[in-house]
Design a protein around this nucleic acid. Structure first.
Lengths: 341, 341
DNA sequence: AGGGCTTTCCAAAGCGCTTTTGAAACTGGA
DNA sequence: TCCAGTTTCAAAAGCGCTTTGGAAAGCCCT
């Protein structure tokens, strides 16, 4: 059933039926009711492609995810982020298009999407320092919003980010309050903006309390369970090991806990640890008292907000750029306690 | 730059330019070369929407993922599966559309996608027993392929699945060979087809070796770390505890290991465990000898194959339904050893 | 009765492609 | 030289929608 057939069936013109369906004022309420009823009865849906061609808008928002060949890694937050964004899109009548491209081909992908008129807007993920994608998107004129910030990008843009600096500063502060003086940082790759900011927060908090950051106590790498284990094991083997850890993700934290267990220590008594918790649905820390003390911020919610932001940007491109800085909650669980001794 | 402008620029008709670009034979090689050069020079890309309208094919394949409100869970394999499928799509010139819908609205979503001409084909995930979606898709005439099988579906359809039954039978066999007699099963929800088949394999292998399955040794639930921990803890607290476990996912396995550690036991010596390993990129078990003995099968590869299967289905709908049963590898790691005593 | 408004509808153009149909130019054979 | 057959291109008709630019009908007022 298409518009032509539906209007023939009603004895009306395509114009009238189209305008009735789209809520224009220049059609009487009586005929609008008739049209609506007929559309309902025949389960009519306007053809997306035709509408897109006629209006010049596709109703689709793109997410480009780089495929990293060298270490075929998919970001673990991807699923929950997409789920959050997808919820908002479907409520707003948008569709989500995901394009997997070779690493480094992202800019080419953006251009191609624009040229082909595939999407109305884009979500940019995992910004790096001085990320060139931002300038490119402004240049080609595609609305977008960024998940995270790109330190060094000199132009204004829309973003949603967690206050990583503050979160890790608070966590560090909390550990210092508990009497910890040697605090290890098991960070993500610091080419990633969020990891960079977390280190800043960590170091600032240490300095604010008169403690000098010790490079020997910090590690950075891709955040796997194995990395968490190796990093914690190595740090615990130091002559003067840390009594507490800051850990960049729950997956890492699972490895850290393993290393602590294997060292014959008790987490929360002999060694404390705070992790950042993105509230990944398959790693959620339920129970009355959470297992891990954590800086908690829902990546799913970030997805929702970012989706909303892109949609707003598409609807009203002229308004000034907006930002949302989400504060992480400090959740006290059982993985922290007073410094021993 | 659109077709009209490009053809005006070349002094050719739109027809000729279009057919030159699309590789038709009725355009001389000389003009084809001219067209190709001009298209390249101006970075011309045909407008997707217009092409879709003209050809009746959108070049888009849909993935519908249900949003489960009650326990906002996203399947952990989602990210890697999507990454695999996305790789194949982009190589084949397709786009991937992901639609997040409320749980139970999947059938409505399929219908709507068909009516609106949004997608050329669909990937169906997480089939349940007697899944009604299969009949629906046949009825509305959308090409599709299923990730997994739906026990009880009486009609033929295309699928890619892991041989879960065989994998768990082999793992059980392996444990029996090591001398284990009491083997616990920490399974996923058995309303899910794959979990159902895993239990079958487990029980068949036990019976084949003259062992009676003991319901007291099995658990099923959503596969989180916490569930793995609780299940293993409870089973280890039995008067006559199992000496080995079969575990449904690596995330679960992390919880199982924790319970074993906390019980003061050593994994691979006092207690053995085999997990199924989907090779999730952020949980990959690297190192010379893997930490976990596992039945291993790449969900990323499953995504690639499924994507290929849908594309083939779109191209040639008349050919008989095809299936791919992927055999899981049994990887011997350090989490298994001879039964104690 | 006639002019200006408002309300309600429609014909037709257009979005940017593909594809059908057919025409022009060129070829070779008798 | 003429005709049939081939090669190469173009005009125009769609694809299914939205939107522009009226037009017809009804209303009120003078």
């Amino acid at each position: 059933m298409n518009l032509k057939q539906l209007s023939a069936l009603l004895g009306l013109s395509q114009t009238t039926v189209s305008r009735a369906l789209n809520g224009y004022a220049d059609v009487s309420e009586a005929t609008r009711a008739r049209v609506l009823a007929a559309a309902e009865a025949h389960d009519y849906r306007p053809n997306t492609r035709a509408r897109a061609l006629a209006t010049g808008r596709s109703g689709v928002i793109g997410h480009v995810i780089p495929r990293i060949n060298t270490h075929a890694m998919v970001n673990p937050i991807f699923a929950d982020f997409i789920a959050g964004a997808g919820e908002t899109y479907s409520q707003a009548g948008y569709e989500m298009l995901i394009s997997v491209v070779d690493d480094g081909e992202e800019e080419k992908a953006y251009l191609s999407m624009k040229r082909r008129g595939l999407v109305d807007g884009l979500v940019v993920s995992a910004p790096r320092m001085n990320d060139p994608r931002i300038a490119l998107l402004d240049e080609i004129g595609l609305p977008y919003a960024v998940h995270g910030r790109a330190t060094g990008a000199d132009r204004p843009y829309c973003w949603v980010d967690v206050n990583n600096r503050r979160a890790f500063a608070r966590a560090t502060d909390f550990l210092i309050d508990l009497g910890h003086r040697r605090i290890g940082l098991i960070n993500g790759l610091e080419t990633m903006d969020f990891a960079h900011r977390r280190r800043q927060g960590y170091e600032e908090a240490l300095r604010a309390r008169g403690l000098a950051p010790d490079a020997a106590l910090t590690r950075q790498d891709e955040m796997t369970e194995g990395y968490g284990w190796r990093a914690a094991r190595d740090l615990l083997a130091l002559p003067d090991p840390p009594t507490a850890f800051l850990v960049s993700s729950v997956i890492c934290m699972l490895g850290v806990r393993r290393a602590i267990d294997e060292a014959g220590l008790v987490l929360g008594r002999d060694v404390s640890a705070i992790t950042h918790d993105d509230q990944l649905s398959y790693l959620r820390d339920d129970g009355p008292v959470p297992t891990f003390t954590a800086t908690r911020s829902s990546v799913r919610e970030a997805g929702q907000r970012l989706a909303r932001m892109v949609i707003d940007r598409i609807d009203t491109p002229q308004v000034p750029h907006v930002h949302e800085l989400l504060e992480a909650e400090l959740i006290i669980g059982r993985s922290t306690g007073p410094a021993p001794g």
